[in-house]
Design a protein around this nucleic acid. Sequence first.
RNA 1: GGAGCCUUAGCUCAAUUGGUUAGAGCGCUGCCCUGUCACGGCAGAGGUUGCGGGUUCGAGCCCCGUAGGCUCCGCCA
Length: 588
Amino acid sequence: MYRTHHCNALRAADIDEQATLSGWVHSRRDHGGVIFIDLRDREGLTQVVFRPEENAGVASQAHHLRDEDVIQVSGRVAPRLPGTENPKLATGAIELVPSSLTILNRAEVLPFPLDGEVNEDLRLAYRYFDLRRPQLARNLRLRHRITKATRDYLDGAGFIEIETPILSKSTPEGARDFLVPSRLMPGKFYALPQAPQQYKQLLMVGGIEKYFQIAKCFRDEDLRADRQPEFTQIDIEASFVRPNDIYALTEGMLASIFKAARGLDIPTPFPRLTYREAVGTFGSDKPDRRFGMQLVDFTEEFRASGFKLFRGVIESGGVVKAINAKGFAGITIGQVDEMTAIAKNFGAKGLAFIKIENGEWKSPIVKFFSEAERSALQTKLALEEGDLIFFGSDKWDIACEVLGRLRLRVAEIQGLTKNSEQLDFLWVTGFPLLQFDAAENKWNAVHHPFTRPKAEDLPLLDVQRYGEMRAEAYDVVLNGVEVGGGSIRIHEPELQAKMFAVLGVSEEDQQIMFGHLLRAFRLGAPPHGGIALGLDRLVMLICGEQSIRDVMAFPKNNRGQDLMSQSPADVDPKQLRELGITLAKKTP
RNA sequence: GGAGCCUUAGCUCAAUUGGUUAGAGCGCUGCCCUGUCACGGCAGAGGUUGCGGGUUCGAGCCCCGUAGGCUCCGCCA
């Protein structure tokens, strides 16, 4: 038996008991005579004291212990000498006085210390070692609590967990696929699933009615702090449901998750905003509402303005909007440049702003404003000394996005959400169904091609007013992060075929790529819909981390490499021959 | 594909205007130390300043290129 107790178990009540502990040498304090070891396992720390006068052999062995050696000690639980108890340690009232010490494994010189900041690439190269950090260990355990709560909740709601294939089929829309070559059918490829989308819909056709999966998904796109090439979704699909059913289910599940993980009762139901409201008021379809700085519309006020720039934009169908960056009039030249760069990056031609300083409105454009226009700005933006107005005047979506991005950056600079404990959940609904891609000269699905148009917008399909159609789709947003999204699906073969056609998929290609789905819909497909939540992002938010890498056991770096195992890597030419693959010569 | 920041000892960082032999803390090695818990003390080892080129009497520092890391934009149905 390696242990009788773990390292966070022994208390004053155990004094004079015999105990055996196993774990890592967390720290050693060698006084030449007496030696203290903090022994660590995943549960905590226990001080072990070696006294030469009690057991010279064991004590001399202990002189050679180094950090992170793995040892086993057996002995007597003793009270600490009066005055030497450590209140910072749960086991601080006692110590173990060992009669035997077994060194189970030595640790070489450590690549980096486990406390303090270390470069992430080094940590990733030694991930198995880095996982000993309390932070990462805590995150993985919290992640387990969250998936456990998810399974328990969905099981209680009658959902069945079903695995769907990882070796799947490439589809044209969406993200770039990871491909897997087939050996038995040379020249053909599987694709790793971007999501179990079609399978879960086919499970609905199969009469499962309530499905879920903690599903690995794969997308071959560039990485970010919150995007990895392989990630996990809480994937849910149900039959005979309307959006309200999905909302209630998701809210209940998230409440259950936050209760299990953080002991918090989050208020439900979540508020709902339409896409138009979210973008129009916050400049984002995943608004962070933990601070104000809302977008205010001044299109009517400036319709006949003496300021030609605004008037011209409005005359050509655009809008004038503004935000009040409170207390930001002291903005530096560098920050003005940064804000202007942000504005231009998101499509604005420039950035107009007004500082309210020393009771004056400071800006080259103020002189063009009428008294009524100034008064409207004053009132609707609730201007005070020290405030700063940013304007967005452009087409609606550009003006909104520019101000939305500025709003987030100002909030970041001002630290408005720093140390915030607030959990702001909301639903965003009524997304556009389709978006025109000028570069490809075609319509693309905003969500995915299986998304159901809102019933009242269906007539627009036949008159080809695609851009005005809204989807029966919804996102759930937490603190400005999209943690999930879903939709009610199309279950009629005719409508689905029509959607494919709008998206530019020929009838022949429909049969090749989606024939099974269209055929399934002709065999009694129930109305259905669902949602998928990004588990990694959710865990990240619950753990208070900035990156999903910190809530995954073995994440990849910025370029999709595993710095520990050095993947991706070259393969043996024999493997390629079996697959019928020849590598193109590298172009110099 | 683009932008920004970064790269000096095993780790985290410093190094004045371009100027002597590139320093500190932690870690490591050796010695001392019997109540510490960030133990303490003494001594020591450890550097191609990412790499290549340039400017200069002289480059960690300036210039050009390149590699790598992170963040963001594009991309992510």
